[in-house]
Amino acid sequence: MNAVPGAGASRRAVLALLFPIMLVNLIGFIVPMLNLGLLSFKEALTGGGIGEKFTLANWVTLVTDDFNRELLLNSVGVSLAITVAALVLSYPIALYIQRAEGLWRSILIVLVISPLLTSAVVRTYGWVVILSDQGGLPSLLNAIGLTAPRMIFNTTGVIVGLTEILMPYMIVSLLAGFGRLDPRLEEAAATLGASPIQSFWRVVFPLTLPGVALGCLLVFVLSVSSFITPKLLGGGRVFLLATEIYDQAIVTLNWPLAATLSILVLVLFGLVLVVYGRAVAALD
């Protein structure tokens, strides 16, 4: 018997209201994901067809093939590099915006977010121009006497371009996490003898860790799943999970292998979320 009269009815009402979106989620997300999983157990025929039989061949390849291991390590490594670079570059910007006031602050926020209004493809092509050997950043560096490294059509270019493209996400996440910051805390630290650097590392930065964690999660995940930028800036030399999935699905037409790699990426994200959850719990 319900202790509270009407409790059962209100629960049913809640479920009824949730039903449409659950249905959408089921049709649009769960079922395709299950299909993807099923696909990973299908046989890939030479020539690109999908066989009828079920097989573990794709999963065996995934685990044993050196190339796939390299893909995973590459993807994680490159994405970590991008995440760290984005954090280091975004933090000062976010801090500056946090301390700005009024109209100037709003202008800065708009400036930070507006690149997101442009498609990633356009922004990546912008980087192709900036990083190209002739007339781009390297020629500028050479002109002032530094020897510029090759930054186009290789891993360096991918990291540079993708870091900048993902920075708005990091900045916005950091700003969200800066809510706990109070200028009084920095003043208190100063009166207690903390130099500006000590005040930053002992007070400001620890307080912003939730925002840092969120930003890193977002940028890491977006980085691993990014294939447009690596394809355009990588010059066919940068092999990541995302680009391989694209190649297998679109060029080689090996959908089963592409599906298998996709599931791998999903598992990777699951792990990352677990790590994130633990980190956030530890921070509180």
């Binding site: 025929l45 020539g47 690109g48 067809g49 999908i50 037409l253």
Partner: peptide, 10 residues
Amino acid sequence: ISVSKAGTDE
């Protein structure tokens, strides 16, 4: 033609 083969197999 190679994709035609793939489609035929299916």
